[in-house]
Structures are given as structure tokens and as C-alpha cells.
Simulated scan of single mutants.
Amino acid sequence: MAARILAARVDDIPDGEAIVIPRNLLGTVDDVALFRDGGEYFALDNTCSHELASLADGWVENGTVECPLHTGKFCLRDGKVLSAPADADVVAHDVEVIGDEILIVPNPERLA
């Protein structure tokens, strides 16, 4: 099992928003956007697959994030692309919440 890394605390992220977890903390090739949506937490590679935009700056709603640059949408749960102009999925990372701690388990395919 991959290491679980403390990324944030539940009060660090307002509902409907995201924060960026630096790649050097997680050992990943991209920064990771940690989202809170409806009390659930999700983690995706932060860079939109269409253009170099931060998904953490996007609009979070109903299990999706909309890229702030060209409005491509992605599923928060698995990173699947849901609308153009994005045409490639982004990588999802596992998230665990224990007490008030949010832990990310980096996807082994995206380790640096």
C-alpha cells in the first residue's frame, strides 16, 4: 500500500472550493488539487489536461470541477473528462479522512 500523506485538515477547505497541495510534499509529478464538495474530499492532478490551468481555481459543484480557462469539466471522483474542450482525463488520487485530518494516497502512476 502506498504511503498516506497528511495534506490538510477538514477546516482548511471551505465547501465548494479547493486548495493546492505541492508536488514536493506528495512526491508526485504535478501539484494536486484537493477539493471539498458536499462534505466529501477528492484529489486530482491540478493541471487541466487541455491547457495549463489550475483546476483548484475552477468551479466545484455536484461532483465536478470546471476548468477556469476554457470550461472543460472533470469528475471529482475519478478524473474523467465530462465536457470539451478537454479531451483527456486527469489523474485521481485516493483521499482518506481520519478525524480532522485529510490524507492523500498518491496514485502510483504519478509519482516523480
Rank of each mutant, 00 (worst) to 15 (best):
M1C: 04
M1K: 09
M1N: 06
A3I: 11
I5M: 13
L6G: 02
A8L: 11
R9K: 15
I13W: 01
P14G: 07
P14E: 13
D15C: 09
G16E: 14
G16T: 13
E17G: 02
A18V: 04
I19H: 05
I21A: 10
N24Y: 06
L26T: 12
G27K: 03
G27T: 09
T28S: 13
V29C: 09
A33S: 13
L34Q: 08
L34N: 03
F35I: 06
G38M: 11
G39E: 08
Y41P: 01
Y41I: 06
L44Y: 00
D45W: 00
S49D: 08
S49E: 07
S54A: 11
A56H: 02
A56K: 01
N62L: 04
N62C: 09
T64F: 03
E66Y: 00
C67Y: 00
H70P: 05
T71H: 13
C75E: 12
L76A: 01
R77P: 00
R77H: 02
K80Y: 01
V81F: 13
V81D: 08
S83M: 09
A84F: 06
A86N: 08
D87Q: 15
V91D: 10
V91Q: 11
V91R: 14
A92K: 12
V97L: 09
V97M: 10
D100F: 00
L103V: 11
N107G: 06
